[in-house]
Design a protein around this nucleic acid. Structure first.
Lengths: 234, 234
DNA sequence: TTTCTAAATGATCATTTGATTACTTTTGTA
DNA sequence: TACAAAAGTAATCAAATGATCATTTAGAAA
């Protein structure tokens, strides 16, 4: 881990071979900051956010008080880890691709879940996510809101359009739950495979395929039921 | 919490009204043990297994060293909490009911998931489960094995029988994954609702119904595909 | 009432924890 | 080269941690 811990930058002091090793013993503020966040993320992923600051410093290869020159307290470091882990593995193109109507909804979401699981289904991301949810529901609430608005609601609405149904911006709770069932089922697969280390299927593509089959085979019926009960009310 | 902390047992000293308050300040070993486990479960559910022994003692209403007369160390207490939480909310009748062929597979599993979620979908059970999985994969591995063998494999096999397909004891990885998709999706619903406190659907029955719809609508196809590829090999 | 077992406590220990301070060393620049 | 800003350290603190042990005392049995 912390693979760049004390790496030497082959920096161009331009003046040719200056003994080959400039031996930078100190890092720039920015680089060190990143080192610390990286090591903290690794350590928190391993033991949870109650993990000690000394262990983190050790992973970085510096003394513990140095952390307090970069973060006022441990909570700030945790906050930085949240940001880093969540933002680094979020692709801004995802919600754009989901609206590309030259592709079928099915193939758009198939592609999305391949990308999404490839980016997030690893012990570090999953463990940090669950630890974060247990420690502080707020951060995970924010993330789930993101998933709901940018991904799952798109799935419901784009599917409606493809079925030739009216494109109502409103998505009912039940429709959301059906979409969440897919997302949640896949997440639990990640939990079993990468957190519990259970012998789950290796064939991620097949798992996604079956999960989406499940969605598409019942979603239409749910829409119809929703539309009918809306009509009843009106 | 710890509602029976210093409750007075209206124990029959038989001799009628003995000043109304017998003031039992000491409890039997068994009762105190249960008090401690109960308080520990509450506290660990709240803050995780790094929670302090002093806080637990406080909830019970005793001093911290007393815990060490009941458990040799903190790990043993944690072990006791595991057992308590998992065993208390497991119903031995479940796997029997699932094999009652006078009922349809669908209604058997509908009933099971109503019972199962009623018993387990609460903040305490869910938080302890996830904390346990993150801390020590083993205990959760054991539990998931239980679910897999006693519940999900039954679902697959009973469904096969109902479809008039050969009752092969062997369940493929892909078939298991489809069943897990339902269980995992429901669990994630519990996570969102009772851990993250997100505004998920209140209608548990409907959520279960839709989840099972998803399962039954694709399971047959998966079985067929499996059977065919088995035939190819043979 | 007296006695004896065991439930419960008080004091305390050695570590570990997050955090602060004064100090040292590196490094880019005047 | 001299210097100042900033990266990094050593020493240390107060609080909290899991755990131990001698002692006290409730309460059932004699």
């Amino acid at each position: 881990m912390t693979k760049f811990g004390d790496q030497i930058l082959p920096k161009t002091t331009c003046e040719g071979a200056k003994e080959a090793a400039p031996k930078r013993r100190r890092k720039s503020s920015e680089d060190r900051m990143l080192d610390i966040i990286e090591a903290a993320a690794d350590h928190f992923a391993e033991v949870g956010f109650s993990g000690g600051t000394r262990d983190i410093a050790k992973k970085v290869g510096v003394t513990q008080p140095l952390l307090y020159r970069y973060f006022p307290d441990k909570d700030s470091l945790i906050e930085a880890v949240y940001k880093s882990v969540y933002l680094e593995s979020w692709n801004a193109d995802w919600d754009v691709g989901l609206q590309d109507r030259t592709q079928s909804v099915r193939s758009r979401f198939d592609q999305f879940y391949r990308d999404y699981t490839a980016a997030n289904f690893n012990p570090r991301w999953l463990r940090i996510s669950y630890f974060a949810g247990l420690r502080d529901a707020q951060i995970n609430q924010w993330y789930n809101h993101l998933i709901e608005e940018l991904i799952l609601k798109q799935l419901v609405r784009e599917h409606r359009v493809e079925l030739g149904l009216p494109d109502d911006a409103y998505v009912t709770t039940e429709e959301m739950e059906v979409a969440w069932q897919i997302h949640g089922g896949l997440l639990h697969y990640g939990w079993r495979r990468h957190v519990l280390n259970l012998p789950a299927s290796n064939d991620m593509d097949q798992v996604i395929c079956d999960a989406l089959d499940m969605y598409f085979s019942v979603a239409e019926g749910v829409y119809m039921r929703m539309a009918r009960s809306n009509a009843d009310i009106a």
